[in-house]
Design a protein around this nucleic acid. Structure first.
Lengths: 339, 339
DNA sequence: ATGAAAGCGCTAACAT
DNA sequence: ATGTTAGCGCTTTCAT
């Protein structure tokens, strides 16, 4: 029977001929009750199609079994992979997750946070995103973790991040080992700490091999949204200048793909003349021809560590302020020729 | 000040020296109150950092300003794009959205639905997904719409779908117009109506041009998760058989990319020897070399129509049972040579 | 224009 | 082992 309004614990109690307290007890398997009672209650629940009203339960117990997830743009391959794993893991622990696409916009982010607070989420997981987190917007009482994002200077919010600097180092050293001397670096004008660290790795590799760093070999994408087209235009312009070039390290696969398009348009052989390395090891690296060498960041591991930390905070335990997830260079045709 | 527990409407009332009813009135801008009172209440709200407790509000008013979104896998480019636009649009209307990755698994879907029901979502939007919707799991009282998904035979749940058959027709006619006679069709073994319709378009085009359809030119991917690798293996096997081939139509870009990889591995020239068309016009088509001709489905439009229908249902209005969004063939290098 | 009070569905003392 | 009841924070009559 599907009456107008959903059955409440009260209806169940009536059907089973017990009090609402008893129903609550068997539902939550909490307190004592006889097996016979349990059976009757369970039957009543089934027969009237009772479903717990979480609004009421949350109000009473002040926990919503709900997590807010803030992510710049779920349509981005790397972010959405992270988001997928995080959602799966949280769901397994009984949490529903609100997804909030902030578009890296501070005001949007604040607005989402307000909503999450009013929805009384049990925790917030911030995935990627370039800005320092607007912590003032979040009450002390609600646990937060950042994944692939730096919450801001001297923030105590736990963060789970990749070995960004090492990634930059590995990428650049690989290019150097492949014989590159004139290595172009592509990043965003709006740099977050992730990217700064990758650049530091790049600089370190150059320094270690006595290759001078030059600002003319540093290309800046306008926004912090990784844009293939912008990267393509920038690299085309660079190529037009005719400077020597034999390697490119891009801080994201998006940029790497754009760079590849520019090289191909200019009939520059990859990896013959110029070698190319990206970052994230996203699906794009395998679709491009030649396939693109990239730095794998293990999004599943990042998501897992992030969820673990958040869940720990929620139950009142401590979580490490910083968890670092290793990276790994995956060599592909854009640097090593044969696939 | 950030005391242990969040301020309630009661605290605000006390600070402002009015009753809680009045506070409620000014918050919801509902009922009458003097401007002076309004000011005092607003001030009190600001000074104690009051945020509405939606759990309480939902309980009382039985609407949660929350939507459940069921999607097979948010890391898939097409789905996540759809999800992004839908979330943005719903957020603009004041709704938060729970994302549920069902992995096309019926049991998982049911479980998510149970949770959504207990969370008292105001509506459910089902994005893509292959199975008929388990409607019994959803109370009549909660509005549902499907986007890029057929809810099931004679279901009254509104659906927003693409012109799938026309897409298949356009794709195949284009191949024929490019001179193809031996056209391979790649789809999933587990066919949903979307794919069946695309195939119907393919069949119709063949028929109209007097080209016989043959089962040996019909490749079936094992799962309904679009898999590049599986497509690649299947096409490799097909090529090994040595049948004549000059065109391929794949029901998804994933499959098209896999097919392209197989062709390239066999050193078959695309589009010289074999021409290739995909479906969805996802980002992959532009990254691949050669870029892949595909059927654009306008995910933003699909999302928009879906949200519009759901929002209408929520306020008690009718929504069209079927909304069809046009498709468009985008010609690229995999069929027309020059980019 | 504003206040008092009932009650949404649930949990957790506190009884018995 | 089970029932009674207060109260979570809010909206909404019904008074005044």
């Amino acid at each position: 029977m599907d009456s107008r309004k959903p059955a409440s614990i009260r209806d169940v109690a009536q059907m089973a001929g017990v009090s609402i307290a008893t129903v609550s007890r068997v539902i939550n398997n909490n307190g004592r009750f006889s097996e016979a009672t349990r059976q009757r209650v369970l039957e009543a629940i089934k027969s009237c199609g009772y479903v717990t009203n979480m609004a009421a339960k949350s109000l009473r117990s002040s926990q919503s079994k709900t997590i807010g997830m803030i992510v710049p743009d779920i349509s981005n391959d790397f972010y959405s992979t992270l988001a997928l794993y995080a959602e799966q893991e949280l769901a397994r622990s009984g949490y529903s997750v609100f997804v909030c696409n902030s578009a890296n916009n501070d005001e949007r982010e604040r607005s989402y946070i307000r909503t999450l607070v009013s929805k009384r989420v049990d925790g917030i997981i911030c995935i990627s995103g370039s800005n320092a987190l607007s912590e003032e917007a979040i009450p002390q009482s609600i646990p937060v973790v950042c994944v692939d994002r730096y919450p801001g200077v001297d923030s105590s919010i736990p963060r789970v991040i990749s070995e960004d600097e090492r990634g930059g180092l590995l990428a650049t050293e690989h290019l150097i080992a492949c014989g590159c001397h004139h290595i172009l670096f592509i990043t965003s004008a709006v740099e977050d700490l992730n990217k700064q660290n990758r650049e530091r790795g790049y600089q370190r590799a150059l320094a270690q091999h006595g290759i001078p760093a030059s600002d003319t070999y540093r290309l800046l994408l306008p926004g912090h949204r990784p844009s293939m087209d912008e990267a393509e235009q920038l690299v085309k312009a660079f190529l037009a200048e005719g400077r020597p070039l034999d390697g490119i390290f891009a801080v994201s696969d998006h940029a790497a793909v754009g760079a590849l398009a520019a090289l191909q348009a200019a009939a520059v052989d990859v990896p013959g003349t110029v070698k190319l390395v990206g970052f994230d090891d996203s699906i794009y690296t395998r679709i491009a021809t030649p396939s693109i060498t990239s730095v794998q960041r293990f999004p599943q591991k990042l998501a897992h560590e992030g969820c673990a930390a958040l869940l720990r905070l929620i139950v009142g335990e401590q979580a490490p302020v910083e968890t670092v997830v290793p990276v790994e260079l995956v060599e592909r045709a854009s640097t090593v020729g044969a696939r």
